[in-house]
């Protein structure tokens, strides 16, 4: 039965061998993971955030563990566009999975400059627009929480990406995520990824100071999974289902059943994030597990499972 199950998917016009990605910021530039997994066996790979110039990132501590989760405030530490194109893209081009580059910026012009250069690369299947990072002073979430800014940055980037997939990564902590999702889709997004991390804080009660040097950080890990499943389902029902726009669902996925939940909620594909830190390579196990789940439920094509939530 299992060999008959088709878990390949159509994702905004490209064919992916399976619906499992690794999430931006949790899998580096791919070379770091090569000792632990065959990155090519993924459906898709998403780089850490790339900015026009190299960024050193925030002071330490940059992370703190919480109950069933962690906060991070890395601050877009990355080697910058030029070094990324020269040093990292050639290796990414050799991967047989779809490669997405997460792009970030402090201004719309910066997003556009990064997007334009990357859109000309054959190695890149698409771009993930980071308008939801909670850990930088300028840019990031400040774009993603204001519908007019979402429209401005999405349409500006759309103009320069040609036929590459433009996936917009949504912030979870907004009054209505569907409003932001609708604006992103209306202004050019052909895929959505959600959720990014939730802005959060941990306090050291001895010093009465935040533990993170950045004071706040983004909460990720199993702690956020039920909220993420809910938000994916909400955006699926209210925005993407009728338009056929795929959702890349993420937030605390570390097991097969976590991934299946997101797909039932409406995600066409799923991304493994924080779990990569604990069990690098777990994404590959999830691919096999999804196939096994489908077989056990007599599902021959994974698309039957997408959005198959039955509400009482």
């Amino acid at each position: 039965m299992e060999e008959k199950v088709n878990i390949s998917i159509d994702f905004a016009g490209i064919r992916l061998g399976n619906p499992v990605f690794t999430a931006s910021g949790t899998c580096g530039y791919a070379d770091e993971l090569s000792d632990f997994m065959d990155v090519s066996s993924l459906g898709g790979f998403i780089t850490k955030s790339i900015t026009a110039k190299p960024r050193q990132g925030n002071a330490t501590p940059r992370i703190v563990e919480t109950d069933s989760g962690m906060l991070n405030a890395i601050g877009w530490a990355n080697i910058g566009l030029d070094a990324f194109v020269e040093e990292k893209l050639p290796a990414l081009e050799k991967l047989s999975c779809a490669v997405f580059v997460n792009i970030a910026g402090e201004t719309i012009d910066e997003y556009v400059a990064v997007a334009e250069r990357l859109a000309s690369s054959d190695a890149v299947a698409g771009l993930e627009l980071n308008i939801s990072c909670p850990n930088v002073e300028l840019g990031g979430i400040s774009f993603g929480t204001d519908p007019s800014q979402v429209a401005a940055v999405t349409s500006a980037v759309k103009n320069v990406v040609g036929d590459k997939i433009l996936m917009v990564k949504l912030p979870p902590a907004v009054t209505d995520v569907s409003v932001i999702a609708q604006v992103a889709v209306d202004t050019g997004a052909n895929a959505l990824s959600l959720v990014n991390t939730f802005t959060a804080m941990v306090i050291d009660i001895e010093t009465r100071k935040p533990i993170l040097a950045n004071a706040t950080g983004g909460l990720s890990g199993p702690a956020i999974k039920p909220i993420a499943v809910y938000l994916v389902n909400k955006v699926y029902n209210e925005v993407t289902k009728s338009l056929g726009i795929p959702i890349l669902g993420m937030g605390g996925i570390r097991t097969v059943s976590d991934a299946v939940e997101f797909i039932i909620a409406g995600a066409s594909a799923v991304a493994v994030g924080t779990a990569n830190f604990v069990e690098p390579g777990c994404a590959v196990k999830i691919i096999d597990g999804i196939k096994g789940y489908c077989a056990s439920k007599n599902i021959l094509n994974i698309k039957e499972l997408v959005g198959s939530l039955e509400v009482n």
Partner: peptide
């Protein structure tokens, strides 16, 4: 293993 970028020195 060099992916999370947490341990900056």
């Amino acid at each position: 293993i060099g992916i999370c970028q947490s341990c900056a020195v």
